[in-house]
């Protein structure tokens, strides 16, 4: 464990707490893409298949359970909670996200570390996570205005993988034969997808103005 990875995990946890706060406090999920949340639930379930077979550390197991439980809880809320589901922007959240699932799985069948069920699902989860934010970014472009909590949620979600890139650089420099090409390349693509959001987020923060994304 290094400071970059810890910062990344804490930022990731913070993004989930901000989203839970938004949904719980406002009893609304307006501006949140349910499709992106469903993709994250698939990412965590597919990635943590080793939850019961490989014990790495208490921290590792605890965080895996938190990520799986929170992502499923958010999807459940957005689908079944009477108050929350009414505020879902159904007509704006139209990205065909099942294509992302299919393409990520197809890529995982081709590019993986080992041809085993666990490794293919791990690679699948890495590729899917890289593109999972797309429905959310498309929804924001369409809805134009972004409320503060949603903006912070997406900012922390993008920032966490940027910390992981620093972690991979650090581990590459300090650990012999550390190579994680699949996670590294995918992580760079994932962070790059946030580039324009980060740009407009920074501008709005500098001008102390409302975050507006160009339609």
């Amino acid at each position: 464990m290094n400071i970059f990875r810890l910062a990344g995990d804490m930022t990731h946890l913070l993004s989930i707490l901000v989203l839970l706060l938004k949904i719980y406090a406002t009893k609304s999920c307006s501006g949140i893409s349910r499709k992106t949340q469903e993709l994250y639930a698939i990412v965590f379930v597919a990635r943590y298949l080793d939850l019961f077979t490989d014990f790495i550390s208490v921290y590792n197991t605890f965080m895996k359970v938190v990520f799986i439980a929170s992502s499923l809880a958010i999807v459940w809320c957005m689908r079944f909670h009477p108050m929350v589901r009414r505020s879902y922007d159904r007509e704006l959240d139209t990205f065909r996200h099942y294509f992302l699932v299919g393409a990520s799985f197809a890529l995982a069948l081709i590019l993986h570390e080992k041809f085993t069920v666990q490794e293919i699902f791990w690679a699948f989860s890495i590729y899917l996570e890289a593109v999972a934010i797309l429905p959310q970014l498309v929804l924001l472009q369409r809805s134009g205005n972004v409320d503060n909590l949603t903006g912070q949620y997406i900012f922390f979600l993008g920032a966490y993988r940027a910390f992981y890139i620093l972690n991979w650089i650090y581990r590459y420099l300090t650990e012999p034969h550390f190579t994680r090409w699949i996670a590294c390349v995918s992580g760079v693509v994932q962070t790059a997808l946030y580039a324009d959001f980060f740009y407009y987020y920074f501008i709005s923060w500098k001008n102390n103005s409302k975050l507006k994304l160009p339609a």
Binding site: D50, D54, Q118, N167, H177
Partner: peptide
């Protein structure tokens, strides 16, 4: 990577 060493990152 040592054999059997699975992914230690989240």
């Amino acid at each position: 990577k040592p054999p059997g060493k699975h992914h230690d990152e989240l």
